[in-house]
Computed example of a mutant assay.
Amino acid sequence: MAIAYRQRIDEDTEFALWKIEEQAEDLYKQLQLNDEEKAFVENISNGKRHLHWLGTRVLLRKMLRTEEYIDCRVDGHGKPYLVSLPYHISLSHSFDYAAVMISKKNPVGIDIEQIKQKVERIASRFLRPVELAFINNEHKIQQLYACWCVKEAVYKCHGQKEVSFMDDILIKPFSFTEQGQVNAILNKGDINIDYTVGYLQYEDYMIGYVRGNDEE
């Protein structure tokens, strides 16, 4: 399967989606892995988690356009990074899709989620009353997912643990369309960062994506 969707944000930043239709063996053959990574893959060699890990790495290779080994690691906060290539990266996955965002200059964050009714039951756990107040009943489920993906993208872009979706990330009011931008503020302790976050409904999935600031 080729890249299903690709969007360029600027000359240095883009994201893409990969629909995972291959078997794990087919994805595995497209990768170069070291011994530690091979052991990790063998450890998760069942189910969607296996396919998601492989799918995001295959997509990363396609976006970086390289046949060389990619040393992709995770820092102490769980944020992925490249050891020897000059890119910031963010990875996400949900059911049949993998998502990757890259940038040469800025930290990035991306999240993809399949849209399901269950989000309504947990909305009050990640949105403040002032945020719930602007949710439109006509597109309630989609807008709630947009809010979740926006906050997840900001969280991944900032790349630090102990950030609360409810208490530390505030979304400014917005009207839902199938693709748009929202303003979100990360405010925690001495940190106060304004983000402009994009969101996109793709089939029955919602994607949130953000390019961070140079000072992060």
Rank of each mutant, 00 (worst) to 15 (best):
I185A: 07
L91D: 09
S90A: 09
A146P: 05
V74M: 13
K161P: 12
G208K: 00
D168S: 05
L31T: 04
A123F: 10
A133G: 02
K156W: 11
W18V: 02
Y155I: 03
N106L: 13
Q114R: 15
E152F: 03
T66G: 08
E131M: 09
K140N: 08
N187V: 05
D26W: 01
N46F: 14
R121L: 15
I20L: 11
S94I: 08
S164H: 11
I171K: 00
I44N: 08
R125K: 15
I3V: 15
F95S: 11
K188P: 10
G180F: 03
I3E: 08
A24M: 05
V108D: 04
V130G: 04
N43E: 12
P107D: 11
E21T: 12
I207Y: 01
Y69L: 12
Q7H: 11
D214S: 13
R121I: 06
A24P: 05
L91S: 02
R65W: 06
A123H: 08
R65C: 11
V41F: 06
E37S: 06
D26T: 11
E11D: 15
I193D: 03
E203L: 11
Q32C: 12
N34P: 13
A153N: 06
Y5L: 13
R49F: 04
Y28H: 14
Y202R: 02
L33S: 08
N34G: 04
C72P: 03
S175Q: 11
G78W: 07
S103M: 04
V130W: 03
E14N: 00
V108Q: 07
K29W: 05
E152W: 04
I110R: 05
I70D: 11
K161L: 14
S175E: 12
I141R: 02
A184C: 12
V210A: 03
A2R: 11
Y155A: 07
I89S: 02
E120D: 13
